[in-house]
């Protein structure tokens, strides 16, 4: 564990020194042993270099916006995130690794986006942000960025167990006109080509991710919708129970991978 943190710190220093392009130090030493690979390892060197340097990673523009929103008071309660949580670097440090989480008050799983919006409606008495809106994406990216480098570890036992099973079933369920399940690409054929693209394991440790194709940051649910559309299935809504359960299962699949938010992918 210590060695890994050291390695990560080392990668950081190298990237800051501006030599990030030439060095690809393994970020996933322990996860690699189990055959779990981050999407980072499938990316080209150029894309990796873009991600490694905070100054060239466009995702950090959203982190900056999130930081501004963090201390902006909104809603009838006249409070900002900062008034209750204080410095995000301390209070949000572990948030990125443990969501989606089981919540007693709603009796189901909740992911970071939903947690932020619940905080807004319940505590700030403000309007919930729309899914994929600039504000919600920025805040989610900012919050998850505080956990960068820490290994993903979601709880899948206890009350989360039935939801985990649902997510797992979703992952293995054939759907759409092409009759394909998530696993057909991301488990059976990870690393193989699908036409001109390399299939990844479909890990979400870097989300919200800056996708070059989108030209902006997007949530894992947007990606799920894209995947579902590609197999000619009707996608579910952003923030639907189906996708939150799937998010839990996919996060568990990538257990031990370091959080990379905001990652850069093609």
């Amino acid at each position: 564990m210590k060695i890994r943190q050291l390695l990560l710190a080392l990668t950081g220093t190298i990237a800051v020194a501006g030599l990030g392009l030439g060095f690809v130090v393994s970020q996933t030493t322990s996860a690699k042993a189990e055959g779990i690979r981050s999407g980072y390892t499938y990316a080209t060197k150029e894309t990796q270099g873009l991600q490694d340097d905070e100054m060239s990673n466009p995702g950090y523009l959203w982190v900056d916006t999130g930081e501004d929103l963090w201390s902006k008071a909104e809603g009838d309660a006249g409070k900002s995130c900062n008034d209750c949580h204080g410095d995000a670097a301390d209070s949000m440090k572990k948030a990125g690794v443990s969501y989606p989480k089981y919540k007693d008050d709603i009796g189901k799983m909740q992911n970071i986006e939903q947690r932020i919006n619940q905080c807004r409606t319940d505590n700030m008495k403000a309007k919930a942000w729309k899914w994929e809106s600039n504000q919600l994406l920025s805040m989610t990216t900012y919050v998850r960025n505080q956990s960068t480098g820490m290994p993903v570890s979601v709880a899948v036992d206890g009350p989360a167990k039935p939801f985990f099973e649902k997510g797992k079933a979703f992952f293995n369920q054939r759907r759409g006109l092409l009759d394909m399940a998530c696993k057909h690409c991301h488990e059976d054929n990870a690393g193989n080509l699908i036409r001109a693209n390399v299939l990844s394991q479909g890990q979400i440790n870097g989300f919200p991710v800056y996708r070059l194709k989108w030209g902006k940051v997007g949530s894992s649910h947007r990606r799920f919708r894209g995947c579902n559309k590609q197999v000619r299935a009707k996608p579910f809504k952003n923030g639907s129970d189906e996708y939150v359960n799937l998010e839990l299962y996919v996060a568990w699949r990538g257990r031990g991978l370091p959080v990379e938010t905001p990652a850069v992918r093609n």
Partner: peptide, 8 residues
């Protein structure tokens, strides 16, 4: 709102 980054 910060929409630009500059590093020197």
């Amino acid at each position: 709102m910060a929409s630009a980054r500059l590093k020197v």
